[in-house]
Write a protein that binds this DNA or RNA. Structure first.
Lengths: 163, 163
DNA sequence: CACCATTTAGTTGTACCCAATTGAATTGTG
DNA sequence: CACAATTCAATTGGGTACAACTAAATGGTG
């Protein structure tokens, strides 16, 4: 059984090409544009955007193992390990092997890492403001993107088999 | 003169934090999810998603200099140079210094590169289908993302001065 | 013609991102 | 208890992405 194809029959291959190109370009561009604004805003904090995402989770959750961090952010250890080392080198976090489970590494904030939160408080307002979107538009866009992500993740799992 | 802040006064800092987190995370996730689907679909063509974007432009435009390619894709030479070398190593493109202007490098398709288009024709349909979005939804999302990108690009230019 | 700013690719260094592998620790089963 | 399967972090390798820099070529301007 193939997955549902919600597109009308009468759409030409050229039309698909245009649509595909447009949506991918737009998404790619938006992602990089966001990154660009974050680069500017976070430069004064001395961290990158993915590092900021990690800090957000730590500020919210306190300490937690690399595994959990990866689940929250959907990143694997190949991405997180070097990133966390850089955060440790910057003095913002500490990494310690768990006593209970020697396989696990606990990531926790240092004094400095905790203190950084104060300076980071102004970031979201600046970012949201930079979008020129109002609260409802942002929520709406977020919902659409989440729906898109769910569909794509689903397809990535099923497609290799469907070929 | 500061840029317009379209947000109501009564929104708390915590609310901004949530919004910021959600929209950034969702965009990040969507971008990577798209990349994941492309990875799966393009594996049989032996190219990556950014390489596919380059091929799309070449299939459409014929030959063109690295500079123009970068303008179309919003990528600089630091990204394009190694990418194009890989496409050349794969036998899909050739790079030749322009006779008119020795600074410029023309990128053109090989026989093999041109031939690949046939096998790539099925890609857009599969990608669009994977989104489960219909044509209107895609166009609408594209428009929102483009609006977002324009606003963010604008902000990235002005923000350093605004501090 | 000589000088200088500009244009264009390429290189280097830093940082993500993912696939695949490694190695240590833990858990489940007989 | 022994041993296989699993879990978890780290590492390695290939591929973007961008900033800063280099180097060659071009195009004025005096």
């Amino acid at each position: 059984m193939t997955s549902a194809i919600p597109l009308p029959e009468g759409v030409s291959e050229e039309e698909f090409l245009r649509l595909d190109r447009q949506i991918c370009f737009s998404l790619h561009a938006a992602s990089r544009a966001f990154n660009g604004v974050y680069r500017v805003v976070l430069k004064e904090l001395g961290i990158t955007y993915p590092q900021y995402l990690v800090m957000l989770v730590l500020w919210e959750q306190g300490e937690l193992p690399v595994k959990k961090l990866g689940e929250y952010l959907r990143l694997d250890s190949g991405t997180l390990s070097p990133l966390l080392k850089r955060l440790e080198a910057a003095g913002l976090v500490r990494r310690e092997r768990s006593a209970r489970d020697e396989r696990s590494v606990e990531v926790r904030l240092t004094e400095e890492g905790t203190a950084l939160r104060e300076r980071a408080l102004a970031v979201p307002r600046r970012i949201v403001s930079a979008t020129t979107f109002d609260v409802d538009e942002i929520r709406d866009l977020r919902d659409r993107l989440d729906r898109l992500t769910a569909a794509l993740d689903e397809a990535a799992l099923q497609d290799p088999a469907a070929h």
